[in-house]
Simulated scan of single mutants.
Amino acid sequence: MVTVTLSDSQVRSAVSMPEAIAAVRRGFVDLAKGEFEMPSRISLRQGRFLVMSAHHRPTASAIVKTVSVNFHRAPSIAGSVVWSETAHPQQLIADAAAITTLRTGAAVGVATDLLAPADAGVLTMIGAGAQAPDQIRAVHSVRPLRRLTVVDVDPARAQGLIRVLRPEMPETELRVGVDLATALGDVEIVCCATNAAEPLFEASALPDSVHVNAIGAYRTTMRELPDKLLRSSSVVVDDVQAVLEESGEIVHAIYTKAITPEALTSLGTALVEARDHGPRTVFKTVGVAMQDWAITSLLANKFLG
């Protein structure tokens, strides 16, 4: 049996963000069509250890991802993704941190391409941690940015992120936001990637027309978005069952009757059903194993043949 092992740098050099977005888009459509067998995520030690798996029926291929999560270390996500197929005994093992940030960014790219106005080009990124660079790259891939503002509790970390991105975005005005309210005043797209336990802003801080992506809260004790924003927006999610079990803002908004489960639309369904989502849209993702499968499938095609 041949086993191919890929590091963080090998994953990143092999998969571009446009490729990742296209693969994850196809994955969400297949998920909506029932082409995946995808058990609920196993969460241990209050979300510090996660195990995820997905089987793609048409290709008889599957992945299992195991990670540990610790926001007080670098990298905060560590683990591996294992790819296997029934057709042959080869397997691929890839760095989970690289795949996680790529696939999460790619999902945001898919959602932003679907939900944000075609001419949107002003982004505020809240949080400058490990997930932030690929969030920005994904949005920039589908909506070329005229202006990017990064807001973080640590302005030095925000400035560091801008230094990393500047060579990739020479035509974009890049700023560090000192005041979040100011950074949201005329924004067109917002990305939230924090470990906040309470909403980051009030719904009234946002313009009437805006698209918001929220990726940080993957436990019921975490919230990035206020109930009023969810109530006044079209809410699209990666997977309805997953967010009902894991998303703090969704669980809280349903508890307070700000929204109902029926108000949630899965991204796969939204991709195949053309409709107007209105001026305010939210994409909420807790991350599902199909996304990891989508990125790892690209790697398997390139490294296993």
Rank of each mutant, 00 (worst) to 15 (best):
M1I: 12
V2K: 15
T3A: 14
L6I: 09
L6Y: 01
S9V: 11
V11C: 08
V15S: 06
M17I: 14
E19Y: 14
A22S: 10
L31W: 13
A32N: 14
K33Q: 14
G34S: 03
G34K: 08
F36T: 08
E37P: 03
M38R: 01
I42P: 00
G47V: 11
R48W: 05
F49T: 15
M52D: 13
H56I: 04
T59G: 02
T66L: 15
F71K: 10
I77D: 03
A78P: 10
A78R: 15
S80F: 13
V81T: 01
V81N: 01
E85D: 14
E85W: 02
E85Y: 01
T86D: 11
Q90I: 00
L92Q: 01
A96M: 00
R103P: 12
D113F: 09
A116G: 07
A116D: 11
A120L: 10
L123C: 11
L123S: 10
T124S: 08
I126T: 09
A128H: 05
A128W: 07
A130S: 06
A138R: 01
V139A: 03
R146V: 04
V151C: 13
Q159E: 06
R163P: 04
L165V: 02
E171I: 04
R175E: 13
A183V: 02
L184R: 07
I189H: 07
A193N: 02
T194Q: 12
A196R: 04
E198I: 10
L200S: 02
L200E: 08
E202C: 08
S204Q: 13
A205Y: 05
A205E: 13
V210M: 11
N213E: 06
N213K: 11
I215W: 04
G216K: 07
R219Q: 14
T220C: 07
T220Y: 10
M222Q: 05
M222S: 12
L225F: 02
R231Y: 12
R231N: 04
S232M: 12
S232P: 07
S234K: 05
V236H: 09
D239M: 12
V240R: 01
L244H: 01
G248F: 04
G248T: 10
E249H: 03
I250C: 00
A253K: 06
A253M: 07
K257T: 09
P261F: 10
E262V: 12
A263W: 10
T265I: 15
T265R: 14
G268H: 04
T269Y: 14
A270H: 00
A270D: 05
E273M: 14
D276T: 10
G278T: 03
T285S: 13
M290P: 00
M290C: 05
Q291F: 12
D292W: 01
I295T: 09
L298T: 04
L299I: 04
F303P: 14
